[in-house]
Structure formats: structure tokens, C-alpha cells
């Protein structure tokens, strides 16, 4: 453990650790990092606003991502369109339980968890009351780590499209939800990247 005699934050000491390379240095207004040359901020600029903006964009994209088909299959002339949840139900009815659970978790549960946790933390910053900051910080780190795993379904669509091109017998085409879904994952990741956990601790 590193020593901690004076309980002091870098901001209270007039210091900043560069948000790009992490170098700790004294922070004067309008300065650039002495090590990597990036603009120096004590907190990520417009963190709350950017986080909200990306999160709301992601929420909007979540609607078409779930309502429109993610994959269009044509098999012996029979067309079939499947939404994400439709695909999960089909997998479950075919007794592929592990895969159904993986897709359901990655495509439905993780995005919802991300919306919930990031908006709760943003509210917590806005209200200024701290609550259990340890748990909130850990929760954010978990959400940040599992976020990109939502891309699984997009990759599955890409692979199926590339694999199943048998002309008359069977073809798979990406549905309109595929791009909305990819956009949703990317914007939730941008929302997490913009979020600054130090803002949670500033009210302490």
C-alpha cells in the first residue's frame, strides 16, 4: 500500500494527473502536459454533459436495434426475419441454452445495465450526495469492462453473413437493426469513456 498521511486530493493540492498519460504535475489554467503534450485538466472537460449526450443517443438507438430485424435469412425461397429477442427465443426453443443466455446477456442485459448504472452515477454527481462511493466506483469499473462485450451479436451477424451465401439454397443478410445495435454499443462506450469517476468523490 502506498502511504497516505495527508488525506488530500490532487485537485486540492493544485495538482493534476494528465488524463491521457497519468503524469502528476502542478496544474495552471490553459496548460499542456509536460510529458505527453495533451491539454491538462483536473477533471475531464464537460464530463457530465458528454456522458449524458452519448447515453441518450445510445438509448434512442436501442429502440430500432430491438424492434427491427438484425438478420434476414432466406432458406429455399422462404424468407425469415429475426429480431434480437426473436433470435434468443428461437435458440432457447432449440435447447441451445448456453448460447441463448450469452446472447441475451450481451445484447439485452448489459446495455440495460449500462444505461441504468451510468445514469444513476450521473444523477449522484448532479445531486452531490455521496452514498457508497466505493461501490459506485467499482460498479462503474465493471460496467466499463463488460460494455464492449455487447458487440458479440454484431460479430455473429457478420460471420453468418460471410459463411452462409449458398445462392438458391440459403443466404443470410444483415438486418437494419445490426447497424443501430453497433451504433448503440459504440455510443455507450463513448459515454463511459467521457465519464469521470473522480467527480463522484469530489463531494466528499
Amino acid at each position: 500500500m502506498a502511504g497516505n498521511r495527508q488525506a488530500l486530493t490532487a485537485m486540492q493540492a493544485g495538482l493534476a494527473s494528465c488524463h491521457v498519460c497519468g503524469k502528476l504535475q502542478s496544474c495552471k489554467a490553459d496548460h499542456h502536459c509536460v510529458r505527453c503534450g495533451s491539454r491538462l485538466y483536473q477533471r475531464k472537460p464537460f464530463s457530465v454533459q458528454r456522458s449524458w449526450a452519448f447515453l441518450i443517443t445510445a438509448l434512442i438507438l436501442y429502440v430500432p436495434a430491438n424492434l427491427y430485424p438484425i438478420m434476414n435469412t432466406t432458406s429455399l425461397g422462404v424468407k425469415d426475419e429475426k429480431t434480437i429477442i426473436g433470435g434468443v427465443i428461437l435458440l432457447w426453443s432449440m435447447k441451445s441454452y448456453p448460447v441463448a443466455v450469452i446472447i441475451f446477456t450481451a445484447s439485452i442485459v448489459i446495455p440495460l445495465l449500462k444505461f441504468l448504472v451510468i445514469s444513476l452515477l450521473l444523477f449522484s454527481i448532479w445531486k452531490g450526495h455521496s452514498g457508497k462511493l466505493n461501490q459506485q466506483t467499482r460498479l462503474f469499473r465493471i460496467i466499463e469492462y463488460i460494455g464492449p462485450w455487447s458487440m458479440i451479436d454484431v460479430f455473429v451477424v457478420i460471420l453468418l453473413v460471410a459463411l452462409i451465401q449458398f445462392g438458391g439454397i440459403a443466404t443470410v443478410l444483415p438486418g437494419s437493426a445490426a447497424m443501430a445495435f453497433a451504433g448503440m454499443v459504440i455510443t455507450t462506450m463513448l459515454s463511459a469513456i467521457s465519464f469521470d469517476t473522480r467527480l463522484l468523490w469530489d463531494s466528499e
Partner: peptide
């Protein structure tokens, strides 16, 4: 400063 590190999650200073 060279002997200090600030936590990236909560900004608390620690001696290295």
C-alpha cells in the same frame, strides 16, 4: 510531486 501518485478513480494523493 515526483514521489506522489494521484488515484485515477478518486484523485486522492498517495506517496509512492
Amino acid at each position: 510531486i515526483d514521489n506522489l501518485v494521484a488515484c485515477h478513480s478518486c484523485d486522492l494523493l498517495h506517496e509512492k
